[in-house]
Amino acid sequence: MSSFYSVRSILACGLLSCAIMGAAQAKPMVGLAVANLQADFFNQIKQSVAKEAKEKDVDLIVVDAHGDSATQVNQIQDLITRGVNAIIYIPAGATAAGVPVRMAELAHIPVVAVDRNAPDAPAQTFIATDSVASARKIGEFVCEKTGGKGQVAIVQGQTGTTPERDRAKGFDEALAKCPGLKIVAQQPSQMWSQSDGFNIGQDMLQRHPDITVFFGRADALALGAAQATKIANLDHPVLIVGHDGDVAGLKAVQKGTLAATMTQKTQFMGKLALDSALDLIAKKPVPALQLQEAILTTKENVAPFIAQHP
């Protein structure tokens, strides 16, 4: 029994020492609720917010919901209890839950939503990439590169999510103006992951060996499809494009594995999110919608993005 006591108390002491470092100061405190740090896109934003917070001497508390909205509600409740002055909210789950925003509102804490926004309870400001426009752009790029002809396969993201829906809309708009491009296959993935992309891509090539274009709705999906294409040993080239501008995606563009991707301005969005949060704390006006343009990235312009993500 005595050893049982001692280990528990060691654990408690460890926590104690952690706490002293983050003890209360007069600095502004911002909570960052991330959907899922396993995803590179979210992790990029988190790193950018953290960097910016350090520069501006802001206390930043990061929580990670591991993609589960119920967990995220708990975490935002904890942030409110902790007494943060503003919350940057990157919603988890298929569509953003409005509950966290409403809870913050009740506590008079401003919320900056990033990437997704709750339709029933919008945050004070919403920062995101204009997904419809950016997917349209990559669609136009595909149309131009292929000369308007080809068999298109799409590895979709998680069904029901806002990015998936918007990217489908934009890409379909572009393809509508390019009737020679035919969608022969499309299938949703569960986790937006590379292994999803690989498995789905392989099955698609099995059924339609004449595929000439792959669109992965995220870079990881496109990279998986690229690997499947490589293994399939086809007798014709396949044009593979992704979306997001993950580090891995950008490197693949440089190598030529991917023809193009749409680079989202994650660093800028992170900085903007923190700045907006600070503005809201200072009661300065912030526009309700801050849509960012994604940048079409090909081999020609990829190098600077790898050195310094926009």
């Binding site: 993609g67 589960d68 909205s69 119920a70 509600v73 789950g93 298929a94 569509t95 839950a97 409005g98 509950v99 029933d120 998680q158 029901g160």
Partner: peptide, 10 residues
């Protein structure tokens, strides 16, 4: 609690 239902719950 969430005022919504998602198939990825739990």
């Amino acid at each position: 609690r969430l005022d919504s239902s998602q198939p990825s719950s739990g």
